[in-house]
Design a protein around this nucleic acid. Sequence first.
DNA 1: TGTTTTAGACAAGCCAGACTGTTTTTCGCG
DNA 2: CGCGAAAAACAGTCTGGCTTGTCTAAAACA
Lengths: 225, 225
Amino acid sequence: MPRSAAALSTLAPQGLPRKDAGLQERRSAETRQVILEATIRCLARHGYSKTTTTLVASEARASRGAMLHHYPTRQALIAATIEYAFYKRMKTFIATIRSLSESDRIERNKGIFLELRSLQSEEYQAYLELHVAARTDPELRDVFFPRAKRYDAVWRDEIAKAFPEWTELGEAFPRACELTRATLEGLMLNRDIWDDPANERVVVELLSRILTMIREGRIEVPEAS
Amino acid sequence: MPRSAAALSTLAPQGLPRKDAGLQERRSAETRQVILEATIRCLARHGYSKTTTTLVASEARASRGAMLHHYPTRQALIAATIEYAFYKRMKTFIATIRSLSESDRIERNKGIFLELRSLQSEEYQAYLELHVAARTDPELRDVFFPRAKRYDAVWRDEIAKAFPEWTELGEAFPRACELTRATLEGLMLNRDIWDDPANERVVVELLSRILTMIREGRIEVPEAS
DNA sequence: TGTTTTAGACAAGCCAGACTGTTTTTCGCG
DNA sequence: CGCGAAAAACAGTCTGGCTTGTCTAAAACA
């Protein structure tokens, strides 16, 4: 199976548990994973600035010394978490997409609902925290945005593979994807404020109809000028 | 002119400069405004957690003592900034909407582009910082969300007044508004990552076409179940 | 034994809020 | 009109708490 350069498999995080490995290495990798999971939880629940090395260690039930052994600085911890969080979210998202029946995927646009669910995961919450923090924190900026752009490329690539029937639409497809993601992310962002599940469902349903109409050519997507 | 309970005028922030007032009160109000502007700048440029009282004071060219005189705690400062930032952004947005020609407003959906520009203001950047921080900071949460919900009501009310020709669509109009805002906010959120002005324009143009089709009844908006 | 992992203490730095002192404005009252 | 006290605005210091990264030492493992 030929893989594009931006495939998900090209960026599996390093240093995580593998079956084949000495006892020590396995133990070490396990600790690292526990720490990364704890970091995601802290980011999602307490925000970026309150995700201190102390808090992460306690959340991971590890000593601070142990943590700083695996991730010498907070930066290193955050960098590893960025990769881990994105990879984990993307992997389950893709897997779920692949498990859809053809009619669910094509006619009922179930992908939207999966994306919406993916945006509710702790991994995305953590990702959003990092994203917003990166806008104003120069150090984090350098760590976050290059990775975020790579992940975006992976996302587009995997989506294209998962929805082959859209490809004949050409540029209309990526634009539809951007529209979808922007809308869903915006919807999630305002969720606590609008606070109306019924209306939210209607908007998502509306988006679904719009996508169908785009696919059927009943809404024309403009070309870049 | 009868005003609805949620009109913008109902929540003009207190304690800001007025022409009629004693010298002391005027001076005081001026200082407060300078401080609030500085806070917005700090939030937009450095983020919530780095917006310290010290930084704000220096940005406002005021002493820390002066600042703590007007806003005894950081909480108080933030609360005042929330109100000020929203009011300021909303006011210029509404004013710009009102200045549109009828054809720009109705046929060309210029409102979308104004909203998009509004989302690029420092006031919105600050607002986003506060919003995201409020999700994880319990104290800020109590201060932010009640206000944010009030502002949302104001926004809906003012939009309804500014686009009278949509009202006959009934519930389709607020849903279209939510779709628009979600999409534009999501677009702004991903701006640094997607980083492609041409594509962004296309998506906005697509959104514009969608809105036109909704208004003309060519896209049916589902009802809440 | 030698290396990896875990544990915990320490110093340096920063921030919020409390505090004291200073200057400017207001206003009552002769 | 003008003087003096009260109040408001402004300035800057101090302390306690928290965080980070470093460092030493012990424990687990190969």
